[in-house]
Design a protein around this nucleic acid. Structure first.
Length: 157
DNA sequence: GCCAACGTTGGC
DNA sequence: GCCAACGTTGGC
């Protein structure tokens, strides 16, 4: 089992959006970065764990947990001229971009802000800290375990 | 809204 | 294949 971090802008698609989907399963689409695509296509497997990260918003950080529930398949948006993710160079025979489905697992009982991640020595090797722009990135087993532990009690109360 | 850090494009 | 110009991401 492997672990990953997926970034999403909560104004577009938040962990609550995922939870609200039918069976709490949503399609992760609109990936238009080759590195991220290659991870989805080649490395990410059914059953892998996903950290759901909220980016470009008031408080950025890890909002909850999900899991991978499908094999990769062609992203339908690349064929849709109405979509902002339409790609004129993609064809049904030779699709360029892939999606996978993920399933909501849980909210972090305490939201883990990026500022805390950066201030935590156990987490400062995260790709998030080092190469912040990658929208899908690997997370180590130790990082995952640390984050599961760090978010399981609500420190706000 | 600014801007740094990338990633992509396209001329040569 | 280089690299300048341009576009995008994403924190602040």
């Amino acid at each position: 089992m492997q672990y990953w971090l997926f970034k999403s802008e909560p104004d577009e698609y938040s962990i609550d959006s995922l939870k609200a989907e039918k069976n709490s399963i949503g399609r992760w689409d609109g990936i238009r970065n080759y590195q991220a695509r290659n991870l989805i296509r080649d490395d990410i497997k059914v059953g892998d764990g996903v950290l759901f990260y909220h980016s470009s918003c008031k408080t950025v950080g890890i909002a909850g947990f999900a899991s991978v529930v499908s094999e990769p398949y062609p992203d339908p948006l690349q064929f849709d001229p109405e979509s902002k993710y339409f790609d004129i160079k993609a064809t049904q025979d030779k699709p360029r971009w892939v999606s996978i489905d993920i399933k909501y697992e849980s909210h972090a009982k305490s939201f883990l802000p990026l500022t805390t991640i950066k201030a935590t020595p156990a987490l400062d090797d995260m790709v998030l800290v080092k190469r912040s722009r990658l929208s899908i990135q690997p997370v180590s087993k130790d990082q995952w375990a640390f984050i599961v532990n760090a978010t399981k009690t609500d420190l706000q109360r």
